[in-house]
């Protein structure tokens, strides 16, 4: 797995003698190897890097579409106001809570479900299929389902189920906006974590568990001493992948709360969307976009390194 990520070792021929031209043939060979990748590279540059450069360019201007002719170059003024914007900081915090909270809860629930599904029982196939279903639903549809069918104060099934316990017409979405969005996200992402961890559990050698049983370990000790260490890299992978997807969440926020009340449940993608397409403030929103991209790259670099290291290290085992 790691070998595809590492650069292949440089051809280790004898050093080129002066006057000859082996460097040219080595260079040609390098290009032979690189050429098939070029179309993908060019395409990636066109669709990601050029827009990014444009965004940086916009972020240096004061430009509001509502005031035609207001466009002017202001250098880093937009960045200064982004960092002074308390709403931006609140929304950034929301994003961290929403992303990490949803991912961690989904991992824990997914682990519990995976442990249950790793046992033999009648109807396991059906149960597994049912449990995977939330992940197969279009995120917008899932969000709509949570908003209208489940969490609605008047017609919601949650209130209906809870009514015998004295919960009246609780307005979940207005009272707990961030939590409502997170519940929908967790519901969708638990199956993903479950599948990943189930694959991890099934790759665990049974003889290790048998050996532990003979060594006197009970179920909890086996889980703590053997299963969790074995699952560690799967948990890390699930966390990183889940975080990468969830940090970009837009549909659930848009459908369930529209970021409200105020910005109580807005995350960065939604807030930037609001500023760009509802406030028409191109300069400000471009600056926010650049800040978010830079922060995401920093976090993702460390997270991905963690995952590749633990999977790479595991290759040598067995």
């Amino acid at each position: 797995m790691t070998s595809t990520l590492e650069r292949p070792p440089a051809p280790s021929g004898p050093p080129p003698a002066p006057g000859q031209t082996p460097t040219r043939s080595a260079r040609a060979e390098g290009w032979v190897r690189r050429a098939p990748l070029l179309p993908a590279l060019v395409f990636t540059i066109i669709v990601t890097q050029i827009p990014f450069l444009l965004t940086i360019f916009y972020s240096l201007q004061s430009w509001n579409l509502v005031r035609p002719g207001s466009q002017q170059f202001v250098w880093f003024d937009n960045y200064v106001s982004v960092f002074q914007d308390s709403q931006f900081r609140g929304v950034a915090l929301n994003t961290v809570i929403m992303t990490l909270g949803s991912v961690l809860i989904a991992v824990v629930l997914g682990l519990v479900l995976a442990l249950l599904l790793n046992r033999h029982f009648i109807g396991r196939g059906i149960v597994r299929t049912l449990l995977v279903t939330p992940f197969l639903i279009t995120p917008v549809a899932a969000a709509l389902l949570w908003k209208t069918t489940l969490l609605d104060p008047t017609y919601g099934l949650i209130n209906f189920v809870l009514s015998p316990f004295g919960v009246g017409e609780e307005a979940w979405i207005s009272d707990f906006p961030l939590a409502s969005v997170m519940v929908a996200l967790i519901w969708q992402w638990t199956p993903f974590m479950m599948l990943l961890l189930l694959a991890g559990l099934q790759s665990m050698p049974t003889d290790q568990i048998e050996a532990a049983r003979m060594d006197g370990a009970g179920a909890w000790a086996i889980f703590r001493e053997l299963t969790l260490p074995h699952l560690r890299r799967f948990i890390e992978l699930g966390t990183v992948l889940g975080a990468i997807y969830l940090v970009n969440t837009f549909d659930a926020v848009y459908m369930i709360t529209q970021g409200g009340p105020g910005t109580a449940s807005a995350n960065l993608p939604f807030y930037i969307y609001q500023r760009a397409f509802l406030g028409f403030d191109i300069g400000q929103s471009a600056a926010m976009g650049v800040v978010v991209v830079v922060m995401t790259i920093i976090v993702a670099t460390f997270a991905l390194r963690l995952v590749f290291r633990s999977f790479g290290a595991a290759e040598g085992s067995n």
Binding site: D207, E210, A211, M214, G216, E225, R232
Partner: peptide
């Protein structure tokens, strides 16, 4: 099996990969 006071050497050895040799041997 944990109450039979029996130790077994497996064909695959079944060592615990996340533990050091010391911790493997100390596990029981």
């Amino acid at each position: 099996s944990k109450d039979r006071d029996i130790a077994m050497v497996f064909q695959s050895y079944a060592l615990y990969p996340s533990k050091t040799v010391r911790d493997n041997m100390a596990f029981p």
